[in-house]
């Protein structure tokens, strides 16, 4: 009952209420209340995540496992962000209420939290994603093999898209007039045509498939058919 019945009831009730809130104005405010609860619970999951982060890293430090110093850096960075953010260090006052210290905006570039975001988190995240340019390309080079028609189609499409966004495209096919009957041999026209007409059709079908899948999965959960989230014992 407590381990299975109540969770199933909570899930069905919450899901049904949100669906009902969309169709019935009478239950609209209930839906808003549930969404407010959801954002609070989601914020608390961040605390759970932080707790896990602390547990794992503190355990690593206390047992002096290899790489414990990196765990100390993680915890120090985490603690610094919490102190800067919660205490709003350096935040400019709220113009409407300048005497209320915690009413100030903690995200402005004048604050310590804003500085950490602008000069630490943002460059780190952007460079981490930029680094993937090398690995995506090298992984593709190692994994892609033009063994059959399908692989060839994928490779040729990727090649056209990549080439069309370089100066080589202008050099190779830029001399074909845009208003000629053979404009479609231009690499930029080919790339636009492939993306706008062919790939869009494929992406549309994928989106429809995902939507149907999400709808079916949601209904399975709400109707109590899928209970994979419940403890096994």
């Amino acid at each position: 009952m407590f381990k299975r019945g109540i969770p199933i009831a909570i899930l069905s009730l919450t899901g049904t209420l949100l669906v009902a809130a969309h169709f019935s104005p009478m239950t609209q405010s209930w839906g808003e209340v549930v969404l407010n609860w959801f954002s609070v619970v989601a914020a608390i999951t961040a605390i759970l995540g932080a707790g896990n982060l602390l547990l794992v890293n503190l355990e690593k430090i206390s047992s002096r496992r290899p790489g414990w110093a990196y765990s100390a850096i993680t915890i120090a960075a985490f603690a610094a962000m919490l102190v800067f953010g919660f205490l709003k260090i350096g935040a400019v006052p709220n113009p409407q209420n300048p005497t209320v210290y915690f009413a100030g905006d903690y995200e402005t570039r004048e604050s310590a939290y804003g500085w950490m975001y602008e000069y630490v988190m943002s460059p780190l995240t952007a460079t981490m994603f930029a680094l993937l340019a090398f690995y995506v390309a090298s992984a593709a080079f190692r994994a892609f093999r033009a063994k059959n028609i399908e692989a060839n189609i994928l490779l040729v499409t990727a090649f056209i898209i990549l080439l069309a966004r370089t100066y080589a495209a202008e050099l190779l096919t830029g001399w074909v007039p845009k208003d000629s009957a053979f404009f479609f041999v231009r690499l930029d026209a080919m790339s636009t045509g492939v993306i706008e007409h062919v790939a869009t059709a494929g992406m549309r079908a994928i989106t429809i498939g995902i939507a149907l899948g999400a709808l079916a999965t949601s209904l399975r959960f709400m109707l109590g058919i899928d209970k994979s989230y419940l403890p096994r014992s």
Binding site: P7, L11, G15, L219, F221, M222, Y229
Partner: peptide, 26 residues
């Protein structure tokens, strides 16, 4: 006991997805 709030999170996500997947995608 944490499965209770987990059920709430899944239920909210499912309820939102039923509407959004039909209205915004399908």
């Amino acid at each position: 006991i944490s499965v209770w709030p987990l059920a709430f999170i899944i239920g909210t996500t499912a309820g939102l997805k039923v509407i959004s997947s039909v209205e915004a995608d399908l």
